[in-house]
Simulated assay, not measured.
Amino acid sequence: MMMTNLSTYKSIYNDTVKIEPVKQKKVLSGKGFYKKVVMSTVILMILFTCFKLIGTNATTNSSAEPQAGEQIIVVQSGDTLWSIAKQYIDESDDVRYMIFKIQSRNVLQSSHIVPGQKLIIPNLKS
């Protein structure tokens, strides 16, 4: 077994390479450390607030009151716009048109609905 000096290393090509010892970084402490912690916290709070505001605006519902002939329903677990629209049309009506009307009336950006959400069901006859 061959012992080597920690400061030098002999390569397979018979060249001696000097290995520099690894310099350890100072542990952050004092003013620099606290500035970084405070800045990181402020940035995280700003990002969190922005995402909350975006999420809040994305899920707002129409606060308009139903007009004559319209109904308010509460979405149940397992409901889809298709199943809801199908309940409120005649056989001669198109389900896709009713889905469009429900989305328009409730200012829905997509067909995604959640249990507990209130929807205004428009009357197709008017």
Rank of each mutant, 00 (worst) to 15 (best):
V114Y: 15
Q76L: 10
S92R: 10
T60D: 03
S92V: 12
K23H: 12
G30I: 04
I43Y: 04
M45Y: 06
R105F: 05
I19E: 00
E91A: 05
S126I: 14
K118S: 13
V95Q: 01
Y9Q: 12
Q67V: 09
V74Q: 14
S110H: 02
M39C: 06
Q103N: 06
I120R: 08
S111R: 09
I19G: 00
P21Y: 09
T56L: 10
D94K: 10
S7C: 05
T60F: 07
I73T: 01
D79R: 07
M1R: 06
M45D: 00
L6R: 06
L124V: 06
S40F: 09
G55N: 15
R96H: 08
K36C: 01
Q71H: 10
Q103H: 01
G69W: 04
D15L: 07
S62E: 11
M39I: 14
T59F: 07
T56E: 06
I89V: 13
G69V: 02
I54K: 09
K36P: 00
C50Q: 11
N123W: 01
S83G: 02
M39G: 08
A64W: 10
L44H: 03
N57W: 13
V27F: 15
L119M: 06
T80V: 05
K125D: 14
P122L: 10
P66G: 10
S104V: 10
T49A: 15
K118Q: 15
K23G: 11
T16F: 13
K23F: 12
G116S: 04
F33G: 03
K101C: 08
T4C: 07
A85C: 02
N106P: 00
D93C: 06
Y9H: 07
I99L: 04
E65Q: 11
T59I: 15
S29I: 11
Q67F: 03
D94Y: 03
D15H: 13
Q117M: 14
K101Y: 02
K101I: 03
V37L: 15
Y13G: 05
N123R: 08
I43R: 04
I84H: 03
R105G: 00
L28C: 01
P21N: 08
M3A: 13
H112P: 00
L108W: 04
D90K: 11
S77E: 11
G32D: 12
S29C: 07
Q117D: 05
Q103R: 15
K10W: 09
T41M: 02
G78K: 03
M1H: 03
T59V: 13
D90H: 13
M3I: 12
S62Q: 06
K26Y: 06
P66V: 14
